Simulated assay, not measured.
Amino acid sequence: MPHSTSPVSSSLSSLPPFPTTLPHAPIARISSAALLSASPAASAAVLAAAQTYGFFYLDLRDSDVGRTLLSESEQLLSLAKRSFDASLEEKNAFHLHKGVSLFGYKAAGTVKQTDLTQRPDSTEFWNVGKDHMLDVVPSRPYPDVITREKPLFADFMRGAHGMGMVVCAALEREMGLGQGELEGLNRFDMPSGDHVRLTRKKAVQDEGAVGLPSHTDFGSVTVLFNWLGGLQIEGRTGGWEWVVPVEGHAVVNLGDAMVTFTNGRLKSAKHRVVPAPGEQGRHDRYSVVYFVRPHNDALMKPLPKFDDGTQVKVAGKFQKQVDEGKVYSAGEWMVRRAAQLGN
Rank of each mutant, 00 (worst) to 15 (best):
M1T: 09
S4H: 12
P7S: 12
V8D: 09
S11R: 11
S11E: 05
S14R: 05
P16R: 00
P17S: 04
P19M: 07
L22H: 09
P26A: 03
A28Y: 00
R29I: 05
R29E: 07
S31Q: 08
A33P: 03
S37D: 13
L47V: 03
A49G: 08
Q51N: 06
T52G: 06
G54W: 03
R61Q: 14
G66K: 12
G66I: 12
T68C: 14
Q75K: 13
L76C: 09
K81H: 10
K81R: 15
S83K: 05
D85G: 10
A86Q: 15
A86S: 15
L88S: 15
N92A: 12
F94E: 12
G99R: 07
A107Q: 13
T110P: 00
T114L: 06
T114H: 13
D115Y: 06
R119F: 02
P120H: 12
S122I: 01
F125L: 15
G129V: 01
H132F: 13
L134F: 03
V137W: 03
R140T: 13
R140Y: 12
V145T: 14
T147D: 04
R148F: 00
L152I: 08
F153E: 02
D155K: 10
D155Q: 10
M163D: 00
M165P: 00
V167R: 04
C168D: 08
A170C: 10
M175E: 06
G178W: 03
L182N: 13
E183Y: 07
S192I: 09
S192F: 07
S192G: 13
G193D: 10
G193K: 06
L198Q: 12
A203T: 03
A203M: 04
G219W: 09
V221G: 11
V223F: 07
V223T: 14
N226R: 04
W227C: 00
E234L: 15
T237C: 04
G239Q: 11
W242I: 00
V243Q: 01
H249Y: 09
A250T: 01
V252A: 08
V252G: 09
D256A: 14
A257S: 15
M258Q: 10
T262C: 08
L266M: 04
K267R: 15
A269I: 02
H271L: 12
R272E: 06
V273H: 08
V274F: 04
V274T: 11
A276Y: 03
G281M: 01
G281E: 02
H283P: 00
Y286G: 04
V288P: 02
V289A: 14
V289I: 15
P294A: 12
H295C: 10
A298P: 12
L299G: 02
P302F: 06
T310F: 00
Q311I: 01
V312W: 00
V312R: 13
K313M: 06
V314F: 08
G316P: 07
K317C: 02
K317I: 06
W333A: 03
R336P: 00
R337M: 09
R337D: 01
A339I: 05
A339L: 10
Q340A: 08
L341F: 11
G342Y: 06
N343K: 09
